[in-house]
């Protein structure tokens, strides 16, 4: 099989070897920086170092015993849950509206809604800061949730729109002719059929909020510091392996959530 083609037209694995190697290198390049942090988190030394000379769980202990880190975790979880709710509902409604609409400006509207994904986050952060200042939303959970929702809505929009593409809008018309009001038809016929894309959109929103650092740096000060913000500051002030242990936890959580979203995606396409 490797050297000799099984049929006269088959390309052998040997001829394709270069492709396999290239793919392997690309994958390593993508994964290694992420994976490096895991052994670092089990280091026994006082400083971030690779490879660690001694092994211990002290930095995990440090994380769980620090009131500051626990407070940041709590803020981050609250922000992520609220962002998920706001972004999923808003984004799903937007996707549905744009999908049903036959207006000419539909395309323009979709582009506008996806814009936060294209614009550099630092610009959004500065803009949000300026906008929130007179409204006193800086350093508030509401402010974090609103700004994270802006970043998450494009992802929800794209995911749910993809889900709606496989849905036949006639079904909703039938439901309405059978006696369901439009909201009722949406809830009983449309939503159950796009629920997997809505769920994976929700998971994406959660991860976006949990990982977000740039906006948080500008607006999440004081009592409402999120984990990524605190990590960033910790990295600047004291290079302390606690952040490696937190990163490891976050990586595992993200992998879990994204894996779940992929799993739901696959179920949807079945």
């Amino acid at each position: 099989m490797l050297r000799r083609p099984a049929t006269s037209t088959q390309i052998t694995h040997l001829q394709r070897l270069w492709l396999y190697i290239l793919c392997g290198i690309v994958l390593l390049y993508l994964i290694v920086p992420t994976l490096l942090v895991i052994p670092m988190s089990f280091s026994g030394s006082r400083f971030l170092s690779f490879p660690p000379e001694t092994w211990s769980l002290r930095w995990y202990k440090a994380y769980f015993s620090s009131a500051e880190w626990r407070a940041a975790t709590w803020v981050s979880l609250q922000a992520a849950v609220c962002t998920t709710i706001v972004a999923t509902i808003t984004g799903t409604l937007a996707a549905y509206g744009l999908h049903c609409s036959r207006l000419r400006i539909t395309k323009l509207l979709s582009v506008l809604l996806v814009l936060p994904m294209i614009i550099p986050v630092i610009l959004i952060a500065v803009g949000v800061f300026m906008l929130f200042a007179p409204m006193q939303l800086n350093s508030s959970l509401t402010g974090i949730v609103l700004s994270h929702s802006v970043l998450a809505i494009p992802l929800v929009l794209i995911t749910v729109t993809a889900g709606l593409r496989n849905f036949d809008l006639n079904q909703e018309q039938v439901a309405r002719s059978l006696g369901a009001s439009r909201p009722k038809a949406f809830l009983t016929v449309t939503l159950p059929q796009i629920k997997n894309s809505v769920l994976s959109a929700a998971l994406l929103s959660f991860v976006v909020s949990l990982d977000e650092v740039v906006v948080a740096l500008l607006i999440a000060g004081g009592d409402v510091a999120t984990i990524p913000r605190r990590m960033f500051l910790a990295l600047r002030d004291e290079i302390d392996p606690t952040i490696a242990s937190i990163s490891t936890i976050l990586i595992l959580l993200s992998i879990l959530l994204l894996g779940l979203s992929q799993f739901l995606d696959r179920k949807r396409s079945k």
Binding site: D168, N170, Q173, V174, S177, L178, S181, K184, Q193
Partner: peptide
């Protein structure tokens, strides 16, 4: 009057049965 208040039965070309 909106469709759901008209009390009419309707059959579409592609059946539009609810697959769930």
């Amino acid at each position: 009057l909106p469709p759901h208040k008209r009390d009419i039965g309707m059959v579409f070309q592609n059946y539009a049965l609810f697959p769930h």
